[in-house]
Design a binder for these strands. Sequence first.
DNA 1: GCTTAGTGCGTACGCAAGTACATACCGGTT
DNA 2: AACCGGTATGTACTTGCGTACGCACTAAGC
Lengths: 197, 197
Amino acid sequence: MRRGKPNDPGRRARILQATLDVIRAGGMEAASYRGIAAHAGVPLGSMTYYFPTLEGLILSALDTTRSDLEPRYADPLREAQTRDDVVDALVDATIGATSPTLDDIRLYAEIRHYGARNPKVADVLQAVEDDSLVMLHRVLPNSTALAINALLWGWWSHRLAHPDTALDELTVRQAFEALVNLPAPGHPFHEKEQNHA
Amino acid sequence: MRRGKPNDPGRRARILQATLDVIRAGGMEAASYRGIAAHAGVPLGSMTYYFPTLEGLILSALDTTRSDLEPRYADPLREAQTRDDVVDALVDATIGATSPTLDDIRLYAEIRHYGARNPKVADVLQAVEDDSLVMLHRVLPNSTALAINALLWGWWSHRLAHPDTALDELTVRQAFEALVNLPAPGHPFHEKEQNHA
DNA sequence: GCTTAGTGCGTACGCAAGTACATACCGGTT
DNA sequence: AACCGGTATGTACTTGCGTACGCACTAAGC
């Protein structure tokens, strides 16, 4: 019963990859069966064969970004032991070596944007964010992790809106430092001794 | 020479308003000539008459948000004298009385999103952001204003992604406090002093 | 070597969109 | 009253889209 062996294994994966490329380059509204088919070099019929609905294709493609991006930002945070390590990792993820390219930020922005109206995409977004929060939560209180997540996304958005002007590293670093050293709510005796006016 | 008096003055304005409504409700891709025409109660021909290109219509509509939103967030910040006042105004703009509704955040998100690919929209976005930065800069160093802008947008984005869970006020407040009290770069002994009032 | 189930593909239909344009309407001017 | 320029609209054309579906191809089973 080994009927139905795929004649072109990997075609499915190539379609998924092409989908992400198209979204990165032209946004979610550029993700049409025909456009992706042209980009992937497969006929239109193949698209509907592997992915009967367009939404299913997009969801599958977006979901693969999780496994692609997660280790990139997760590993440095996972290895961070002190709060300074955390700050270093965050600055790096914002503007440094492990930071996403503008294209990748664009892709992430598409997920956030689409997720605001599409519950299925919102689930994907939630999963990505949970990954990040869980990691931060290992060394920081929950509320601080939320604020840091918000700021990190804010910096990325800034890069997106100002692609030609680089963010000043000291500015980014001090902002993250200020948040990382926030006292845990309900535990005001956390030895922070930061400048609190 | 009083030829060409409009038969329905205000129709142009109503179309612009309907455009914003449609974008708020369904996003930029819902902004079609036909959909907006139906929402505004005008025939299709009126749309192309007043706004020959769809992009022009959208740009005009987005631009009107500047004059709508600006005073709402500007006034409290303009009246803020101490840094605590600034923090109050920021917390309020994030989750308080002057904070935008989810629909308005959605609209702002559309501007940011569209602005990432469309230079004309990017100009609108830049203008909105400049308004905000100029105000913050009255009482804070430039780099701090940048960070605060990033965090504010991050919080709004958070609300968008989690419409059903309210943000904790203390969390928001402490995060803003931490940023507002950052030392000015290059002037580490600025401490409590404000810039030119 | 025929059968057959699954893989892969080309074509066509229905729909909604932006746009172009000929036409009707209205209110001053003469 | 006749005219005329700007205002306003209905209609039709073209394009690109998702989708449906029938047919061709391939390889395992007999």
